[in-house]
Write a protein that binds this DNA or RNA. Structure first.
Lengths: 230, 230
DNA sequence: GCAAAAGTGTTCTAGTTACACCCATGC
DNA sequence: GCATGGGTGTAACTAGAACACTTTTGC
């Protein structure tokens, strides 16, 4: 089957930069190993073609599901990359998305094209296919910028988390040390965390309180003009 | 002539939200009147198809030049709109850009398709074609957000401007009153304005000093970790 | 001399930063 | 009992907000 148009058209794809945290709160990104040329065997961002009957956001979500089994997550459009030579085969414009997930809740695995999916520490990425290194850089900068002004970090943590986990997350992503007392004071003063009255268990030191992010309260406060900021 | 592909492809366009300030520092947006169906005679954002040999940013720049005569300006990617039904004829994905120009420096006029180009006050826009109202809204929000944290407002003003003009610009775009003394103190303390030693002329009141934005100094300060903020 | 916008400092308040010790648990 | 991370308050400093009058020009 073939499709004809009066004017030439670029192919349109979506690519996803999926961030997660490992057990020691190090920032990871999910990559898949390409099974086909060009860049065969090279690691790349998960992605694929936009189909005629789906919106671009739906395409990004579908690709993530197909390639990794990931289902519900934070997904936001990042930027559209449209340099003429970014794909050696053909003119391809890609709309990049970035996603945040709690690694513990998913078992990532390749599902299509016999491709391998795996997490990589953002400090030690392999050489990537196409312009994916550039897309990753833009995504990392966006994440750093957004984390300070919107409560998106909770997407990376389990539903119940300790204040130290939260602080480590900020330190990892923002790449700087934060003062423990100031951090706690600031975050607790916002009244956006629910004390679950539960404790961490199985640790060989004093167990920490577990908190939950109070999303409905955040939405209410935002309506009233509140601005989240770390 | 016709072009065939193995899989169906969406058409890809760019659309531009061009902002300017009128003589009394009111925010304006440039629209063109459509000469063709659908939405014939309706006002729309300037834009058009991305050609195979040009990057998407180059396409946005070219469309602006073709339709309005505008040449050098601040242009930045906004967002990509890809809902399936956003164009009634066909699947069309559009990459939206926003641009800032100093109206006084350009005479805007229609150049192609016998279409009319004109400036509209953002408070009184006509009904727009396609999803252009939504694109405009996103652009306005982006402009408001960006203006506070990056010195992009100067793009809207003539090269030499008074502090009152600058303050009015911020008040107009951010839609709130600012305190004159605090505003001046803050902006002058940044040392980003060059006193041209010239004065406003032809006004029937005390003439104001004219300033210029010192871009090279801004770039140097930014390297050193300085963050612009109003 | 009057209308219109330019220009100029200080006080008060709120938020940010810096900083050190005791506590609870597992082994 | 020791190693490990959990948990807590205050003082100094800095940035932001509120606020009113004099100056210069054209007509």
């Amino acid at each position: 089957m073939s499709y004809s148009y009066e004017h030439p058209r670029p192919a349109v794809t979506v690519d996803c930069v999926v961030f997660g945290l490992d057990r020691v709160q190090q920032l990871q990104v999910m990559l898949i190993q390409r099974g086909l040329t060009p860049f065969k065997d090279r690691w790349a961002l998960p992605g694929g073609f936009v189909r005629p009957e789906e919106s671009i956001e739906a395409a990004a979500m579908r690709e993530l599901q197909e390639e990794t089994g990931i289902e519900r997550l934070f997904l936001e459009q990042l930027y559209t990359f449209g340099e003429v030579e970014r794909d050696p085969r053909d003119r391809v414009i890609t709309i990049a998305y970035y996603a945040l997930i709690n690694i513990a809740e998913y078992t990532v695995q390749a599902r299509t094209d016999a491709r391998d999916a795996a997490w990589f520490d953002v400090q030690q990425l392999p050489k990537l296919a196409f312009d994916h290194q550039q897309i990753f850089q833009v995504a990392k900068q966006r994440l750093q910028g957004k984390l300070r002004y919107q409560p998106i970090g909770f997407e990376l943590l389990p539903c119940k988390f300790t204040l130290t986990q939260l602080q480590r997350l900020y330190e990892t992503v923002l790449e700087k040390k934060l003062d423990k007392r100031n951090f706690r004071q600031k975050i607790l003063k916002m009244k956006l965390l629910i004390d679950t009255e539960q404790m961490q268990s199985g640790v060989s030191h004093r167990p920490a309180k577990l908190y939950q992010f109070d999303e409905s309260r955040y939405l209410a406060l935002k309506e009233a003009g509140f601005n989240f900021e770390i």
